[in-house]
Every structure is written in C-alpha cells, then in structure tokens.
C-alpha cells in the first residue's frame, strides 16, 4: 500500500506545517514593518533598537533562538505568572514556534521592506503630500502599492527559507510533517520512504510558492518596462 496508509496522517502534518508558516509570516510582516519604520524614522533611539534587533537575529542560528525562546520564555512567563498568583502556564509549541519564527524572519523582512521603501523615488510621496493627502493616505495609495514590486523578490526568499525552517519546530515538539514522518518511520521501519515523501511535499510547496509569487511580481510590475539587452 502507498506509504502504508500513512498518507492522510502526513497530509494532516502538512496542514500544521502550512498553518505555522502562514501565522509566522503574518507575525514576521508585523515585525518587519515596525522594524523598517524604526530604521527609516528620524528617531535615534528607534534606529539603534532596530539595528540591535536585526544584528542580533543575524548572529544566531534559528534553532538556538527557538530553544531559547521556547524554554526561556516558558520560565519567564511562569515566573511572572507566579508573582501575579496565577497557576502554571504551558506554552504550546505552536505559539512558541510561530512567535519565534515571526520574530526571526521579521528581522530579515525589516531589511527587505526598508530597501523596498527606499527604492520608491521620494518625489512621489512629496507629490502626494502636495496634493493634500494625509501621511496615511500617501502610505496606502502611493508607497505600499509600489513597494510590493520591490519587496517581492526578498519576500519570496524569506518565505521559502521560513517554510523550511518550520521543520525545526518538530524538535521542540510541534506535531508537524517532520514529526509525523518520524512516527511513521518508527512504526514501519521505512524511514527513507517517509523522509523522501515529506521532502517531495516540501519541494512541491516551495515550487508552488515560487510560481505564485512570480505571478504576483509580474502583476505588480505591469507598468514597468524591463531592460532589454
């Protein structure tokens, strides 16, 4: 039988992998926007804080940050809960994983978004303001739509790295695709079959992502002529 009937179980793991990736991406986008705003703001304190954030993340392996936040965060939160007179709080791997991955990739997205915003000619935002648009309206109508085009390549890259990084969450006990493959290979004694199977699924997910994001990039670059050599 194909995969000894474990395919549904693995696909359920895939759902968990995709859910973690999607939630982490949303969190990373928030961190990325805040970080980019801080780096581009005139405030010195915000610049230093954002630089410290991106430097720290780039200096550490994802796995170490994951363990630090999962186990360290657990202790910190329970110390606080203890002080507040609450009972034991258990952080589940889903929450710890998405927060950590969001925090890590938020640092990379900070750089992506910062670059994308800087790539838009300043005159455009000035022109918008000259028409009496509010700062928020300039951001929504002028900066954001054009930023997408510049941000997509870096964004695609980060998304691909992040999907692959979710595999590490199986180490802190998330019931994802890798964990399902671990269980299935222990039960059937055919580890290669199952790890190859989930490898193929990861490859399918990254391939689809590349195709979709490539289409989005073309869609947002419609008005821009390519250089022809």
């Amino acid at each position: 039988m194909f995969l000894h009937g474990y395919l549904p179980a693995i696909l359920e793991g895939l759902r968990s992998t995709l859910a973690v990736s999607a939630v982490s991406l949303a969190i990373a986008c928030i961190f990325g926007f805040v970080g980019a705003a801080a780096k581009l703001s005139g405030s010195r304190a915000a610049n230093i804080a954002a630089d410290a954030y991106t430097t720290l993340i780039r200096g550490l392996p994802e796995l170490v940050l994951l363990l630090l936040i999962f186990y360290g965060g657990q202790i910190m939160i329970n110390r606080l809960a203890d002080r507040a007179g609450l009972g034991y709080i258990d952080i589940n791997p889903f929450i710890a994983g998405t927060t950590t991955l969001g925090f890590i990739f938020g640092a990379y997205l900070t750089e992506t978004f910062r670059g994308a915003i800087l790539a838009i000619p300043r005159g455009q935002a000035e022109a918008g303001q000259a028409y009496g648009m509010s700062r928020l309206l300039v951001l929504r109508r002028i900066v954001l739509p054009q930023m997408v085009r510049h941000a997509i390549p870096g964004f695609t890259n980060n998304w691909l790295v992040m999907i692959k990084a979710t595999a590490l969450l199986s180490i802190i006990g998330l019931d994802d695709m890798v964990h399902r493959a671990n269980l299935a290979s222990a039960a059937t004694r055919e580890p290669f079959t199952f790890y190859a199977a989930i490898g193929a699924i990861y490859l399918a997910v990254t391939t689809v992502s590349i195709l979709v994001l490539g289409w989005v990039e073309r869609r947002f670059s419609l008005g821009v002529r390519k250089v022809e050599f």
């Binding site: 595999a167 580890p191 490898g199």
Partner: peptide, 22 residues
C-alpha cells in the same frame, strides 16, 4: 533546485536515519 527546496533537517534525517532502510 531539489536541495534548496527541502529543509536541511529532512535531508539529514534521510541520510542518517533513512539510509538504514536499505
């Protein structure tokens, strides 16, 4: 393409745990 599209952890498991299958 295949290597860059799959997680390193899975590649490592395939080699270390997986190959024992054969």
């Amino acid at each position: 393409y295949v290597i860059r599209g799959t997680p390193l952890l899975v590649q490592l498991y395939m080699i270390y745990f997986g190959l024992a299958q054969f």
